[in-house]
Design a protein around this nucleic acid. Structure first.
Length: 850
RNA sequence: GCCCGGGUGGCGGAACUGGUAGACGCGCUGGAUUCAAAAUCCAGUUCCUUCUGGGAGUGCGGGUUCGAUUCCCGCCCCGGGUACCA
C-alpha cells in the first residue's frame, strides 16, 4: 500500500482540530512543562522553511514531555504591533489592524499545515485590546513603583511618598536618578508639580528629556539595540542624536540582578556573555576634583583609582554642562567650535573614525587630589556624556586612549609604573607595581585600589562606585501602531489612568503620519482627552512591550480581571524551555527578564526569571548560501514541501539538517532521503501479511530498545538530528528482519510520533487504536534486551588497530589479553619481541604496547 | 582591537565522561528488477598505495598519554557579539 502523505496529514490535522487534541487545562494534579516559542511578527510575506525550525524543535519536546505524562503548555500567538504594518498603512491607507489580521490568518494556515501541537485556544495577539489592556496595566504598575536599593526590590511609589513625608530624601536609599537632598519639611512645602518632578526621578517608568536615536526617515526614536552600525536596523536609514522628552524604563535599577540572575539560567555561554557585556558592570570609584578659580567640582568615574598619581589632565565630554562656565575667554571660540563639530557628527562617522584623536583645551585647570598638581581640562568626544559622569581623569601612563591623546596634544606623561617605558605606550596591566605614587608605591593594582578609595573617602573626595554600560530603555515611539501609553496630563503633570479606564484603545486617525506640528500620529485623533478633558499622551509603546510579558498571558489568556490569575501562574511557573533566535540577546531577552523581575518584586508572580532554559535555533540559509529572501529569489516555502513530501518529511528533514543551534543551508535533495525513510517505515505497518500478534524475538527487541534508549537520551539533550538517524537505523534493521509484530511496531510508532506525528497517528490507528497516539505513554528502555553474549574487541598495537577478536561478553580482562595475544596475527605484530604492556579496557579495546 | 562560538570525506553531519574516526542521509559508481521508466532492492564510496596487505588522515605546529576529533600551549581561518564604557 502506497504511503499517501496528503491523505494522512489531512485526516489527522482534521482529527486534531475536531477533537481539540492539544487543548489543555490548568490542571494541577499533573506535573507541568512549559515549552515556549518566540512568537512571530506576522509579516506580509509569510513563512519560509527557515521559520518553522525552532517551532518544530519545540513541538518535538512538547510532544515528548506529553508522552512522559507532563501537562504541557505549548502555546502560540502573534507579536502583532510593528513597523511594517504601519509603513504599509502609510502607503496604502489600509488600517494596520486589517493587514495584521490578514497576515496572521495566513500564518495560522501555514503553521497548521506543519502539524504543530499548539493549544490555539490560548492564542494571544499583542495588538488585541484585550491583551494590551494588561500591557498598559503593567506600564502603570511600573509608573507607580520605585526601586528600594536597601530591600533590593521595587516597591509602590506610595511607600516612597510616605517616607519623604517623614524623613525627606535621606529616608530612602533608591536606585534612582535623583541627585539633590530635601527634608520632610521641604517636601511638604513643594507644589504638586515640584513633587512630581522629584518622583519622576524615582519611578520605574518616567518622563525624561534625553538624547535619543532619532531616525528621520522612519519618523521615530529607536532603542540602542534597534540601531546597527549607526543605521536603523529596519531599513538601514540614517540615525541622528536628538534631545526629546521621552518615556523611559529604569532598567538600570535592575542591572545587578539582570547580571547575577544569569548564573542560574541554562542559556548558552555566548548568550550570557552578550548580556553581561551589554550590562557592562564595572567597579571603581567616583572622585570629585576641585577646579582652580571655580566653585564647580568635577566628578569622574575611574576603575583605576590606584593610578590617580599619574593623572596629568582631565577630559570632559563635549556635552558636559560645566564647559561653558569653565572655559576661559581666550578659548571660548575654539571650544564651542569643537562642540559644534562633535555634535554634528553622526553616530556613523564617530564609529568609522574611532582612531582619530580630536579635542580642545578649555583653559581651565583642575587639582589632582592626590598630589595637588594642576591638571589642564580638555574636552574630547572620546569621553561620552552618557557613561559615568561624562568626565575622566586622564592617566596617560595607564590608559592607552589617554596616552594617545597626550601624545597628540603634547601633554606630559608622568610614569607611575615601575620599570615601564612610557615612550612605548600605556601599560594597562594590573599586575605591575606602582611608583611615583606616594603611599601607593610598590603596590599592585589589586592592593592599591582599596587603599586609594579609602584615602579619597576619608578626604571626602569620593567613594567606591559601580557603573553600568546599560542605559535606561527609551520607551516612547512616535508611531501609530502600538499600545497607547495610559497617561494623561493634568496641568502638565503626568498621571496614570485608572485601571477601570483600560484598555485605552487606539483611536482612529485620518492618516498614519505625524501632524504638521511634528506630533506623533495620535495627535491627529479627535478628542484624544480624558473624560475630564485632560490631554492624553501621544506616543505609543515600542515593539518590545507586549513581548516582555506575553508568556504569562498564555497561562490564563481569557482572564478578564487579572493579567494572569494567581492559581494559573503558581501552577505553570517559569518557562521550562524557550526557543528563539539569538538576535534577541540584548533586546527582547533583556526586557523580558526585567519585567519578570519587576512583576516578581511587586508580588504578582512567584519567580523572577522568565525562562530557565533557552535554545537559540540557527538560521537556515538558502542552498546558494544567501539568506532566503525575495531579493535573491531563493525562498523555499514550507507549503510547497508539505504538498510534495508531506509535513512529516518537512519536520524530519529540518531536524536532520544538523544540530538545532547551528546555521545550515537548506538542502532540497536531502528531503528525498527522509521521504524514502517514511515510505520504508510505512511498509512495516502495511505489509501483505498484516500485523502479527506474535511474541517478538531477541533481535527485534534489541533493535527497538536500542532505539528507545538513544531517542530518549537524544531528545532529553535536544539532539534532535541524531534521533532521525536512530529511527533510520531501527527501521532499516526491522525491515531486514521483516518484522510485522505489534509488540515492536506499537512502541516504534510512539517513538517517532514526536518528530512525525501524522504518520505515527495513522500507524497507531492501523494497529487498532481508537484514541490519538498523543494519549500513549513513551516507551521505557529495558537494558535486558541489549545484553550481548559476545563482544568484538579491536586489538591494537601501539594504538593502531590490527585485528579483532570475538570473546564472551563477560570474559575477565586477563583472559581477553591472553586470547588477543594468541591470535594468528599476533606473532607478526609482536615481531618476535614480548609486549611491554597490554591494556584491556573492558567492553572497549585491547592495546598492546611494544 | 577585545569577548564568545566553531574548523571532521564531494556535501549535511555522527562519534555524549580520552578507547575501532567518518554513524545516518545526500551525491556519485556498479549491479538486480523492468519492453522502458518511475519506484524498490543489493554492493561500493576519506585519501594515497606496489591491494589476501600497507601508509597517511579530524585547520596548522608542538605537548601530555599505552591511546587524542576529544585535554594543554602557540598559530591560522571562518561565524557571532561589541565598538573609544574611563
Amino acid at each position: 500500500m502506497e504511503y499517501n502523505h496528503r491523505a494522512i496529514q489531512e485526516r489527522w490535522q482534521k482529527y486534531w482540530a475536531d477533537h481539540q487534541t492539544y487543548r489543555i487545562e490548568n490542571d494541577s494534579s499533573r506535573p507541568k512543562y512549559y515549552v515556549l516559542d518566540m512568537f512571530p511578527y506576522p509579516s506580509g510575506s509569510g513563512l519560509h522553511v527557515g521559520h518553522p525550525l525552532g517551532y518544530i524543535a519545540s513541538d518535538i519536546i512538547a510532544r515528548f514531555k506529553r508522552l512522559q505524562g507532563f501537562n504541557v503548555l505549548h502555546p502560540m500567538g502573534y507579536d502583532a504591533f510593528g513597523l511594517p504594518a504601519e509603513q504599509y498603512a502609510i502607503e496604502t491607507g489600509q488600517h494596520p489592524a486589517e493587514t495584521t489580521k490578514k497576515n496572521s490568518i495566513r500564518y495560522r494556515e501555514q503553521l497548521d499545515k506543519i502539524g504543530f501541537s499548539f493549544d490555539w485556544s490560548r492564542e494571544v495577539n499583542t495588538s488585541d485590546p484585550k491583551f494590551y489592556k494588561w500591557t498598559q496595566w503593567i506600564f502603570l504598575q511600573l509608573f507607580d513603583s520605585w526601586y528600594d536599593a536597601d530591600a533590593d526590590k521595587a516597591k509602590p511609589i506610595q511607600d516612597l511618598v510616605e517616607a519623604f513625608e517623614i524623613g525627606g530624601s535621606s529616608a530612602v536609599n533608591a536606585n534612582s536618578s535623583f541627585e539633590g537632598t530635601f527634608t520632610a519639611a521641604d517636601w511638604k512645602a513643594m507644589s504638586p508639580k515640584e513633587r512630581e518632578d522629584v518622583l519622576q526621578e524615582f519611578r520605574l517608568t518616567f518622563l525624561k528629556e534625553s538624547t535619543v536615536n532619532w531616525c528621520p526617515a522612519l519618523g521615530t526614536v529607536l532603542a540602542n539595540d534597534e540601531v546597527k552600525d549607526g543605521l536603523s536596523e529596519r531599513g538601514g536609514h540614517e540615525v541622528v542624536q536628538r534631545k526629546m522628552l521621552q518615556w523611559s524604563m529604569r532598567i538600570t535599577a535592575y542591572a545587578d540582578r539582570l547580571l547575577s540572575g544569569l548564573d542560574s539560567l541554562e542559556w548558552t555561554d555566548s548568550m550570557k556573555e552578550i548580556q553581561r557585556n551589554w550590562i557592562g558592570r564595572s567597579q571603581g570609584a567616583k572622585v570629585f576634583f576641585d577646579i582652580v578659580d571655580s566653585e564647580h567640582q568635577i566628578e569622574v568615574f575611574t576603575t583605576r583609582p590606584d593610578t590617580m598619581f599619574g593623572a596629568s589632565f582631565m577630559v570632559l565630554a563635549p556635552e558636559h554642562p560645566f564647559i561653558e562656565d569653565l572655559c576661559t575667554d581666550d578659548k571660548k571660540e575654539e571650544v564651542s567650535k569643537y562642540q559644534k563639530w562633535a555634535e554634528g557628527r553622526s553616530e556613523r562617522e564617530r564609529m568609522s573614525e574611532v582612531k582619530e584623536v580630536t579635542g580642545a583645551f578649555t583653559g581651565a585647570y583642575a587639582v589632582n587630589p592626590m598630589n595637588g598638581e594642576k591638571l589642564p581640562i580638555w574636552i574630547s568626544d572620546y569621553v561620552l556624556i552618557g557613561y559615568g559622569s561624562g568626565a575622566i581623569m586622564a592617566v596617560p601612563c595607564g590608559d592607552q586612549r589617554d596616552w594617545e591623546f597626550a601624545r597628540h596634544f603634547n601633554i606630559p606623561i608622568p610614569n607611575i609604573i615601575e620599570g615601564h617605558d612610557i615612550e612605548v605606550g600605556a601599560l594597562e596591566d594590573k599586575g605591575a607595581s606602582l611608583c611615583n605614587s606616594g603611599f601607593l608605591n610598590g603596590l599592585k593594582a589589586t592592593e592599591a585600589i582599596p587603599l586609594a578609595i579609602e584615602h579619597i573617602a576619608k578626604e571626602g573626595r569620593g567613594q567606591a562606585r559601580i557603573n553600568y554600560k546599560l542605559r535606561e530603555a527609551v520607551f516612547s515611539r512616535q508611531r501609530y501602531w502600538g499600545e497607547p501609553v495610559p497617561i494623561y496630563f493634568e496641568d502638565g503633570i503626568p498621571k496614570g489612568m485608572s485601571e477601570s479606564d483600560l484598555p485605552l484603545e487606539l483611536p482612529e486617525v485620518d492618516q498614519y503620519l505625524p501632524t504638521e506640528d511634528g506630533d506623533p500620529p495620535l495627535g491627529r485623533a479627535e478628542n484624544w482627552v480624558t473624560k475630564e478633558g485632560f490631554p492624553i499622551e501621544l506616543n505609543t509603546m515600542p515593539g518590545w512591550a507586549g513581548s516582555s510579558w506575553y508568556f504569562l498571558r498564555y497561562m490564563d489568556p481569557h482572564n478578564e480581571t487579572d493579567f494572569v490569575g494567581k492559581e494559573a501562574v503558581d501552577y505553570w511557573g517559569q518557562v521550562d524551555l524557550y526557543v528563539g533566535g539569538a538576535e534577541h540577546s540584548t533586546g527582547h531577552l533583556l526586557y523580558f527578564r526585567f519585567w519578570t523581575k519587576f512583576l516578581f518584586d511587586r508580588g504578582f508572580i512567584p519567580f523572577d526569571e522568565p525562562a530557565r532554559k533557552l535554545i537559540n535555533q540557527g538560521m537556515i540559509v538558502a542552498e546558494d548560501g544567501h539568506k532566503m529572501s525575495k531579493r535573491y529569489g531563493n525562498v523555499v516555502n514550507p507549503d510547497d514541501i508539505v504538498e510534495q513530501y508531506g509535513a512529516d518529511a518537512l519536520r524530519l528533514h529540518e531536524m536532520f539538517l544538523g544540530p538545532i543551534e547551528d546555521h545550515k543551508p537548506w538542502n532540497t535533495k536531502g528531503i528525498e532521503g527522509v521521504y524514502r525513510f517514511l515510505k520504508k517505515f510505512w511498509r512495516l505497518y502495511t505489509s501483505e501479511d498484516g500485523i502479527s500478534r506474535e511474541k517478538a524475538n531477541a533481535a527485534e527487541l534489541k533493535s527497538l530498545h536500542q532505539c528507545i534508549k538513544k531517542v530518549s537520551e537524544d531528545i532529553e539533550r535536544y539532539s534532535l538530528n541524531t534521533c532521525v538517524s536512530t529511527f533510520m537505523i531501527c527501521v532499516n534493521e526491522l525491515s531486514e528482519l521483516k518484522c510485522t509484530k505489534a509488540e515492536i511496531l506499537e512502541p516504534l510508532a510512539i517513538l517517532i510520533s514526536c518528530h512525525a506525528p501524522h504518520i505515527a497517528e495513522e500507524a497507531w490507528s492501523r494497529l487498532g487504536h481508537t484514541e490519538s497516539i498523543t494519549t500513549a505513554e513513551f516507551p521505557k528502555f529495558n537494558p535486558e534486551f541489549l545484553k550481548e553474549d559476545s563482544k568484538t574487541y579491536p586489538v591494537m598495537f601501539n594504538g593502531k588497530r590490527r585485528y579483532e577478536i570475538v570473546v564472551p561478553a563477560d570474559m575477565p580482562k586477563d583472559e581477553v589479553e591472553k586470547l588477543a595475544l594468541e591470535h594468528e596475527y599476533a606473532e607478526k605484530w609482536l615481531e618476535g619481541g614480548a609486549p611491554k604492556k597490554v591494556i584491556v579496557v573492558p567492553g572497549k579495546i585491547v592495546n598492546v604496547v611494544l
